[in-house]
Amino acid sequence: MQTLAMHISNGIINGPVAAVFGALALAALTFCVLRARADLDDRLAPMAGLVAAFIFAVQMLNFPIFTAGVSGHLLGGALAALLVGPWVGALCVAVVLVVQALVFGDGGVAMLGLNITNMALLGTAAAYLLIALLLRVLPRTRAGLAVTAFVSALVSVVVASQGFVLQYALGGTTDLGGNLAGLAGTMAVAHLLIGIGEGLITATTVLTVAKVRPDLVYALRSRRAAAPAVAVPVAGGVR
């Protein structure tokens, strides 16, 4: 119960590389803020706060994966991208990581740029690209939405884990003796399994919101506008 460091700790990646990723993350988040403003209105802003708080909560819930002695937890990029869109979504995950690093001592403060790059930026971006693709090709049903959520969540977790491998290749503090592929493989397998959990949580959550308040699911907006059976034809009421 007491361990629970979930993100990259100080000392794992060297200072210069951590600083470079810090600058990179800051630039990317600034860009996200600019793009997010177009999405954020009176309805999305409170929803985005909720998404961040919900991701914080679920990240505490480490679940066992099928290999002995290893757990996983939600990263949240796909969930955020589905519910509040990619730009606001990335910011939601970043807010969680900042709170965790500055208040809960989880993930080194000096490592914040690395953690944000992997989970808030790479994870959310990978998820959203898949979401945009899958929602176009899959049937517009609850099953289609479930598959979209599951697959995008799973892939985003594996992508985020490989982001760490790249960072380790650039500035890892232990000489792996050329065995970076070993680390990549270990991370990929573990996060493939974690991704299954992430996919289940993401799909369950998004389907629940879609059932209660479909208008609060960002990813469904264009879809619903395009659907022929929309009941309210005037004044943007479909949103």
């Binding site: 119960m1 794992i12 679940f63 002695g69 290893v70 270990t186 573990a190």
Partner: peptide, 17 residues
């Protein structure tokens, strides 16, 4: 949260290899 797994997560366990 009190019933969460206390095993190291995917990242930590990979780094413990």
């Amino acid at each position: 949260s009190n019933y969460a797994s206390s095993h190291p997560d995917g990242l930590d366990s990979s780094l413990l290899k």
